[in-house]
Design a protein around this nucleic acid. Structure first.
Lengths: 255, 255
DNA sequence: CCCCGCTCTTGAACATGTTCAAGTCGAGGT
DNA sequence: ACCTCGACTTGAACATGTTCAAGAGCGGGG
């Protein structure tokens, strides 16, 4: 009994409004949906909440499904009713940080019009958001790395999350006053997202205190990208640009 | 058989010569060594051999430690006497392919003096060597991805294997007739290796038939690298080159 | 020849992710 | 009021990676 959700719950309609103020619930197009009822949704949240807390407290590998179930006051099997596997619990973490990144990015993008600082700000914001979880992000990073895993950023299951992430970078480009080759402009958001994945990869491996090497990477790479992008308008470099874009296109073909 | 290592085996010294014709045995500086005797080494090989065969036949996840032990005719615990974990068995696969790549690369490098075809040849050779294992390389790729895993290409345990791999790219550069900035020449091998890791990453995710997208990636990227490297000698681009090298240096600092 | 010590081997026991058959619960129809 | 059906819940059972205490085998010193 959260008491918050309106009493007039539609009979069969899933209740999508989050009981507490957190950006998790919508979760963007879960798989083949079982038509959740209010009670179920509450249990689901409880399990997810408990799991993420324990992950942060003890680490991913050290948190057993039994511990999660016990702490949440349900049976182990119940967790598996809502989540296909232990790894799937991570998706919740994923979505949450994604939302937080978006929020932090908005703030940066509202204040700045130049491409370079926009990009730099968004990247740093992303690291800021994830920083508290660095130690255990590494632990479950391998789950995301496996190509067949639904957690992979390239998987079909993560497609909505991926699109949302790319959208941030689209806004970085679109909202900037940078003038650049139109075709490049079209491709750039996805390329920047790919770069962001690279930064995350670097960050996961970065054991320097406070991950300051990652910060330096961002600060060093952004100006280079900025310069490269500006150069894209030079007539002399047109052929080179075409070549690169053609390469990208050829690589994308046939998946 | 490598046949290079001297036949005079010291009494208590570990017998490093492989009983069968395969390039696995040396395995470059295993952890704190238990002084293996001949019998033990033979068992070790047997277990590794069996494991790799089953991995190829059934896949990594589907091969249980019990199955390996049973097939090899030993007890489960015995496998754990020689290998710290199931993942550690992969290191054997690793080393073997590394050696095969080196051999294939030598052949290419002996025949070609221009930088671009040398690089291209070595990259394609690497893919050739790994191609038969693509389907199950993906399965255990996650093991390598975890930063804390000894299997990570960046881990201290893989240091010898990594050095060996970088050496290939050093030969690509050193043996070529390309004239390039001396400082870049010094850094290039490691950068190319890093790029190779990127290619592998792409390859693991590449689901196109025959991984032809990876081939296209190689064919497209090599000319770009070649051109970039040539340009590094232009006086106009000196500052940019310095900037990039300084960035790399700053990122490398404090691990 | 016997014993000591070390390498090597064993298999049962353990921990934990996952599955499943058997329920319980509650809303909607009759 | 009762029935039904599907969402939800349970906990024991299972599969598998890993550990460990106990030994077996063997080489060398006395």
């Amino acid at each position: 009994m959260t008491g918050v959700t309106s009493a007039a719950a539609e009979p069969t309609g899933p209740d999508e409004s989050a009981p507490t103020a957190d950006p998790t619930a919508p979760a963007a197009g879960q798989g083949a949906g079982k038509p959740r009822r209010a009670r179920g949704e509450q249990t689901r949240q409880l399990i997810l909440e408990t799991a993420l807390r324990l992950f942060r407290e003890r680490g991913y590998a050290e948190t057993t499904m039994r511990a999660i179930a016990k702490e949440a006051g349900v049976a182990v099997g119940n967790a598996y009713y809502y989540f296909d596997s232990k790894e799937h619990l991570i998706q919740g973490f994923y979505d949450r940080n994604q939302a937080a990144h978006r929020a932090a990015a908005e703030e940066v993008l509202a204040a700045e019009k130049e491409l370079a600082p926009r990009l730099r700000g968004v990247l740093h914001a992303g690291i800021d958001v994830n920083a508290p979880y660095h130690s255990f992000a590494a632990t479950f990073f391998k789950s995301a790395a496996e190509p067949t895993s639904p957690l992979s950023p390239f998987s079909r299951e993560s497609s909505p999350a991926r699109e949302a992430a790319i959208a941030i970078f689209r806004e970085v480009v679109e909202g900037s006053n940078a003038k650049l080759d139109p075709e490049l402009r079209r491709e750039l958001p996805e390329l920047l997202w790919l770069g962001w994945m690279g930064v995350i990869l670097f960050w996961v491996y970065d054991k320097s205190p406070g991950q300051r090497r990652t910060r330096r990477l961002i600060d060093g790479v952004v100006p280079l990208i900025d310069r490269l992008v500006s150069l894209s308008r030079l007539r002399v470099l047109r052929p080179a640009l075409r070549q690169v874009l053609a390469l990208i296109d050829s690589i994308r073909r046939d998946d």
